[in-house]
Design a protein around this nucleic acid. Structure first.
Length: 569
RNA sequence: UGUCCCAUGGUGUAAUGGUAACACACCUGGUUUUGGUCCAGGCAUUUAAGGUUCGAGUCCUUAUGGGACAACCA
């Protein structure tokens, strides 16, 4: 599926259509994705990326990637690089070169000077605490700063000296002069600039004053010619300020430009059993609860990638969940559905046994090997087939044998026949146990007339098992992942810290996995270079990037749907 | 005791004043050399009360419930 093969209509489409009908912005549509480079992208960002790039493509204007880098203390090029990689991997390309808000610092400074000259901004010498206390509360109006009515000349001089570095962090700020009694807290003389003596990842030490988000974002949109500036719901109350700054600058332009941006908000993604806040994800990484930003249990784009998710499945998910203004909590089962659906069609099937028990086929000649043909993917015959070796001693899954099994158990038991997929029908004759009662060997006989494809193989037997030839199999490591949190809403739990809700069994490492020797011949071709497989009857797995030639590690992406284990409960 | 936003099945999303639909989840049954896939079916929905209208999930009013907003973060 190409990005946006399917377009679901949503309210933002309708808003854009209506702008287009009024011939706003000269008929242009340009969107942007504006992350702050202070962390890795997660599935919530992926929703926004699919939305913005989807709209950009649909309306043929494209999408800018802009790094909102106005806070040097939190930002880093490591994040810039990972964000670019993730956006590309998801299948999107931005217009031209990536943009940076820091590219606009000079322009923003010039506009701030204009606002000062018009009496719309002033330098405030008070501390953060005092300014905060003068803000009032949502129900009590604020009080005006004693510095609010400084002369234009004094403000100009002070602002210039702020830029020159004559003041320490926190000594003064530039504020917009709006309305300290506004019912919208953001309009109570918001800060435009603060002093930060720190190294910026791009501008180094060129600046020691940095614009705040509210002053920078809309202007950045305007400079780039963005027509629709789409963000999440919490910025709704910022919109009047977004428009105030924009209009204040537009008023000073010789003529009104053709395109002016408009902010539209939508509800962010929440997933159950998942934390999505950057702060918490950072904490999981820093305090080593996970192995890094790309730990396969993380909801980050890089984590999902390493887990084995495909870009197509994530785009499909974004499409499925839709866009609206209502708060939502999406069931992770939907994300799992999307990856199963994709991998079912595209992942080659191979044989691997995770928890082996030895089976000896007593009437199969010792030392003989028979090569069985196996279809790589029953959903896609163009993926071809390969051969796998069958011999006297094989492994099957320990769970596939049960002594004195109930009728509904369609697997192996003494005296019962089962089919070994792509091989023969076998009958269990006996078992051997150790002193603890644990089964060590299972003895079967096979029926030579029931090889797959033969007339005799048409006999109906209840169960079909996967298997590997012990002698030929390769041993690999498998990492099985479960949800990181046990609580359905780890972000919202008020009694317990989210760390207390971590699932202690979210990772289990299996070192006893035996896989057929020819699995690399099974035609696992994914555009991103990641090798993904279905381990027959078990789930979808991919080769971890830390694998070495003689030390292969598989990550379990997701299990197959399993109506049998549900039934057992 | 403010301002703003939101309210459709278990979860999401659609229906643009004219038959409340789609997906996921869950439950049956069928097919199957994966207890997968696939196929057929089932379950279950407009927060409430008024109003406008021939007709309201949709427009208006009120109520109720939920959310956002008082970082020198974005």
């Amino acid at each position: 599926m190409e990005p946006n093969d399917t377009i679901k209509t949503n309210f933002i489409h309708q808003e854009i259509d209506s702008d287009l009908n009024e011939n706003k912005n000269g008929g242009a549509v340009l969107t942007r994705f504006p992350p702050e480079p202070n962390g890795y992208l997660h599935i919530g960002h992926a929703k926004s990326i699919c939305l913005n790039f989807g709209l950009g493509k649909y309306y043929k204007g494209g999408t800018n990637l802009r790094f909102d880098d106005t806070n040097p203390t939190k930002e880093d090029t490591e994040y810039v690089d990972s964000i670019k990689e993730d956006v590309n991997w998801l299948g999107f390309e931005w217009n031209d070169e990536p943009k940076f808000t820091s590219d606009y610092f000079e322009q923003l400074y010039d506009w701030a000077v204009i606002l000062i000259k018009k009496g719309k901004a002033y330098v405030d010498d008070q501390s953060a605490e005092i300014i905060a206390s003068q803000k009032g509360t949502p129900t009590v109006p604020g009080t005006e700063s004693p510095f609010r009515n400084r002369s234009v000349e004094e403000n100009l001089d002070l602002f210039e000296r702020m830029r020159k570095g004559e003041f320490q962090n926190g000594e003064c700020v530039l504020r917009a002069k709006i309305d300290m009694a506004s019912s919208n807290m953001h309009m109570r003389d918001p800060l435009m600039y603060r002093i930060i003596h720190a190294n910026h990842h791009r501008t180094g030490n060129d600046w020691c004053i940095y614009p705040m988000y509210d002053y920078a974002h809309g202007q950045g949109d305007f400079i780039e010619g963005i027509t629709h500036s789409i963000c999440t719901l919490e910025f709704e109350v910022h919109r009047p300020l977004y428009e105030w700054f924009l209009n204040a600058i537009l008023d000073e332009l010789p003529e009104r430009p053709v395109a002016t941006p408009r902010q539209i908000e939508f509800a962010r993604l929440n997933l159950n059993y998942t934390v999505m806040s950057k702060r918490k994800l950072l904490q999981l990484v820093n305090e080593n609860y996970v192995a890094g930003w790309d730990d396969p249990r993380m909801p980050t784009v890089s984590g999902l990638r390493r887990r084995g998710y495909t870009p197509e499945s994530i785009r499909r998910f974004a499409d499925e969940i839709g866009i609206a203004k209502r708060e939502n909590i999406i069931d992770v089962a939907l994300l799992e559905h999307c990856i199963r659906e994709d991998l079912n069609k595209r992942a080659p099937r191979v044989y691997a046994v995770l928890n082996p028990v030895k089976v000896i086929i007593t009437n199969f000649p010792e030392g003989e090997v028979e090569w069985m043909e196996a279809i790589n993917n029953p959903e896609d015959e163009t993926m071809g087939s390969r051969t796998l070796p069958f011999s006297r001693e094989i492994y099957i899954e320990r769970d596939d044998f049960m002594e004195n099994a109930p009728r509904k158990f369609f697997r192996m038991d003494v005296g019962r026949e089962v089919r070994l997929k792509n091989a023969y029908i076998v009958k269990c004759e006996d078992i051997k146990k150790d002193e603890n009662g644990e089964i060590t060997e299972i003895y079967c006989t096979y029926d030579p007339d029931t090889k797959s494809g033969m007339e005799g193989s048409k006999r109906k037997v209840k169960g079909t098992l996967h298997w590997v030839s012990i002698e030929h199999s390769k041993q690999v490591q498998v990492k099985q992942y479960d949800r990181l949190f046990m609580d359905e809403a780890p972000d919202a739990n008020k009694e317990k810290d989210f760390l207390e809700l971590l699932n202690p069994d979210s990772l289990s490492v299996v070192n006893t996995c035996f896989i057929e020797p020819n699995y690399m011949d099974a035609n696992s071709k994914f555009a991103d270079g990641i090798q993904r497989f279905q381990f027959q009857r078990l789930g979808y797995f991919c080769i971890d990037k830390a694998s070495k030639e003689d030390d292969v590690i598989f990550n379990r992406t997701v299990t197959l749907k399993d109506s049998w284990s549900k039934k057992k409960k």
